[in-house]
Design a protein around this nucleic acid. Structure first.
Lengths: 213, 213
DNA sequence: TCGTTCGTGATACGAACGTATCACGACTAT
DNA sequence: ATAGTCGTGATACGTTCGTATCACGAACGA
């Protein structure tokens, strides 16, 4: 049973080529040949490692979601050893905003996938569309901890605030993506809101002061 | 110069066929032939009234945006003769949520257009992508009025709150669209937030009581 | 060593798409 | 009345897409 190349690695390389090509052309316009050219391989190879385009897209979605999860986790870790809940939430929300090329592409592809999922039940059945649920649980837990520590404004509902923050982040991210708003102003809006939720405005590490949107 | 049919009306009919077909198949999958079949006309007719597919899409985007603006305005008017700012804001946000088929299709198409606009500069140049600016100005004005009337919580920034509410509405709308959240829970989150902004929780007309998300 | 399977390239195929062409009936202006 | 243009249908064209086919070198197990 000869096996000369690492399939998983090849698939990852091709999936990243898909991500790059999609970021450039748009997911709707990217074809198997574009992916092959971007990856520097032949069309046949893309077919070989992914039997159909649909499977390539599915794998690509999973890959993007995974990479983004790692990105957010890394940013949260970089926030410090044991930062306050606010710093963690802030790091999480900041990482999700389309500030650089990587997060821009992520937002772009994720939104494109979401649009496809509305009419494609195979995509809608993928668990990665529901990944926001994970983020929601994480933020809810952080806010709950902050509440028991007395760092939240009285009357604030951790779960409702978590949902609100993430929905805001998604909405702001889209508006940044289409060039309607700058990433800085989006961050300022989020900062404003965190100030309204947390009692302790301190705790943000290496963050430019909030400016008016 | 014989002129037998109303061009504008025909174009509108075809554009609405585009909207219906796109809502069913997804904007990425709809073709000229689908639009023609949906409108009950021949392919040639679609070509005749819109020289190219791109122009059809552009017109369709404008049409959708216009129809949605009318919808929101109608809902706001239906809120009463002179309701408080909160009732108007609430009517506006409620109308924007994908609660029924019409608003679902609107959200779907608008998001699809936004995704296309990321890579298509012709679409990005369309002013309808920036229509949220109009909504932002409207809500900001309403909140400013509420603030001067003493109906806002102290320290609330009308513009920041307006941006937040609309971003939340967009983000929640997307999650409702992909089936991650129910429209009712999205509305509950918005209600929660309005309660945190306004001092007077009254003023909502014909609204089911807010329930936990 | 030798046969089998893996990895890869070149190329072909059928479908669908957007667009273009041709023809013809209908209606209005003169 | 008649000429010219508008509205409409049928059909064809060229491209591009995803997928399939065929062939061949290379590497491992026996």
């Amino acid at each position: 049973m000869p096996k000369r190349v690492d399939h998983a690695e090849r698939r990852t390389e091709i999936a990243e080529a898909l991500v790059r090509a999609s970021g450039r052309l748009g997911l709707h316009a990217v074809g198997m040949r574009d992916v092959a050219a971007e990856a520097g391989v032949s069309l046949r190879l893309v077919q070989y490692y992914f039997e159909s385009k649909e499977k390539l897209l599915l794998f690509g979605l999973r890959h993007v979601a995974e990479r983004f999860g790692q990105r957010v986790a890394a940013r949260v870790r970089a926030a410090g050893d044991d930062p306050g809940p606010r710093a963690v939430v802030e790091a999480l929300l900041w990482a999700a905003l389309p500030t650089d090329e990587e997060s821009r592409v992520f937002h772009h592809l994720y939104t494109a996938y979401a649009v496809l999922a509305v009419t494609d039940e195979t995509l809608a059945a993928q668990p990665y569309i529901k990944e926001p649920d994970t983020a929601e649980a994480t933020v809810t837990k952080l806010l709950t901890r902050a509440a028991t520590d007395g760092q939240l404004r009285p009357g604030a509902d951790p779960q409702a605030e978590a949902i609100s923050l993430l929905a805001m982040s998604a909405g702001l991210g889209t508006s940044v993506l289409v060039g309607q708003r700058s990433a800085e102003s989006a961050a300022a809006v989020l900062s404003y809101h965190l100030d309204r939720i947390f009692l302790t405005p301190a705790g943000r590490a290496r963050t430019q002061p909030a400016q008016k949107p």
